[in-house]
Computed example of a mutant assay.
Amino acid sequence: MDSGLELALANLHDRLARAAHQDRLLDIGYRVVDSPIGKLLLAATEAGVVRVAFEIEDHQAVLQRLAESVSPRILEAPERLDEAARQLEEYFNGKRRQFHLPVDFRLSRGFRLDVLHHLPDIAYGSTESYAQVARAAGSPNAVRAVGTACATNPLPVILPCHRVVRSDGSFGGYLGGTEAKRTLLDLEAAA
């Protein structure tokens, strides 16, 4: 494609994104950022970050599910996620241990939501077992449900489900894959 045409299309997109935001026609803005664990899709509503998705989840499929479950008014709008992108970059560079971002929890309910609310309490560089998280979330017998809550966490990294491991210390599953989980835990252990 001609570089002049690419620039014109980029400018048009930026104008449309700003107009949609100003006129409150944009329900979900998104952007993709590079990270040591691959490209991450970040999506936010007016309430806050609603989704962080790994490349292996297929970003287009994630956007389609957001369109079906939240709103079809989705547009690439990087500026809505500038702060989230900045904080993630700081985290991956070892300069941030906690995220201070507004989050939109609408994709989780019930016990899963209780688990998500507990995850930021697990200290940077530390882990808790699924059983410990079940107790902290108020249902000591719901160990498997903790695994399901972590596996369906819509905000991985920001809500650190990678810090939840099996009682024997082994990793267990992870939405981004075991190598991503290992990378995150190694990054935090090195700090």
Rank of each mutant, 00 (worst) to 15 (best):
V62I: 09
L113H: 09
A8Y: 11
Q98Y: 10
V165I: 14
V33D: 09
L175M: 12
V115M: 05
H13C: 02
I56R: 15
A142V: 00
E128F: 08
V52M: 05
R24P: 03
A134I: 00
M1G: 15
L12H: 15
E46P: 02
Y124A: 09
E46D: 14
S170K: 11
L116K: 00
A8S: 15
V115W: 04
E46Y: 06
L5N: 10
C161Q: 09
T178H: 07
L81G: 09
E188S: 04
L184W: 02
E68G: 11
R135I: 10
H59G: 07
T45L: 01
Q87K: 06
L25D: 14
Y130H: 11
A85H: 09
G173Q: 12
S167R: 14
V52D: 03
G172H: 01
F54A: 02
S129M: 03
A85T: 14
I56F: 05
E57K: 04
Q98G: 06
Q132S: 13
R163V: 07
A44W: 03
F111W: 10
G147Q: 09
I122C: 02
V32K: 13
T152F: 11
D104Y: 00
H118N: 08
A19V: 11
D23N: 11
L81D: 06
L107R: 00
H117F: 10
R31S: 15
E128M: 12
H117K: 12
F111L: 09
D14M: 08
P78D: 11
F171I: 10
P154D: 03
L119V: 03
R80F: 11
I74N: 07
V70R: 05
E188V: 01
R31C: 14
